[in-house]
């Protein structure tokens, strides 16, 4: 058990970061902090993937000097997944930030509880 913890420290760090980001996204009242949480959460997943694809001592999967053996390079698939994931999280963050601006213009606060209260006021 202890050995596993030591040898997988990067994965553990990734999952802990994921937890921090998730809790931030879930519990913070402030919208900007929620978005920061979202980014921590997504980045933690990329760290996890990057660690999983890395094979220590091997090179980035770009063919060098005509060496085509798979033994020479790290696993390129997780890197591809990370790239795709980054594209997704950039667009989602951009959308969230745009929404935050629109929301602030109308409610003059970033506190979601306050916004809920004001919404209730409008419904009545």
């Amino acid at each position: 058990m202890g050995n596993n913890l030591a040898s997988n420290f990067a994965e553990i760090a990734a999952v802990v970061l994921f937890g921090i980001g998730f809790t931030d996204l879930f519990l913070h009242k402030n919208l900007i902090k929620k978005i920061i949480g979202l980014n921590i959460m997504d980045t933690a997943v990329y760290l996890f993937l990057a660690v999983k694809g890395y094979i220590s001592g091997l090179k980035a999967p770009i063919i060098e000097n005509g060496v085509q053996s798979t033994e020479a390079y790290i696993n390129p698939i997780p890197s591809g997944l990370v790239l795709t994931g980054i594209v997704v999280s950039v667009s989602v963050s951009a959308l969230m930030l745009a929404l935050t601006v629109a929301l602030y213009e109308r409610y003059h606060t970033l506190d979601l509880d306050m916004i809920s209260l004001k919404m209730k006021g409008m419904e009545e």
Binding site: V15, F18, G21, F22, L25, F26, L31, K34, L38, M41, D42, V45, F48, G85, V92, L95, M96, L99, T100, A102, L103, R106, Y107, L112, I115, S116, M119, M122, E123
Partner: peptide, 24 residues
């Protein structure tokens, strides 16, 4: 309008939590 923007933000937050768990 004001109501839909606030609804969309809440939708996005919950939904992003869901996608985070799914991705992991």
């Amino acid at each position: 309008n004001r109501l839909t923007i606030a609804s969309a933000v809440r939708y996005m937050i919950m939904s992003l939590m869901g996608s985070g768990l799914l991705l992991l």
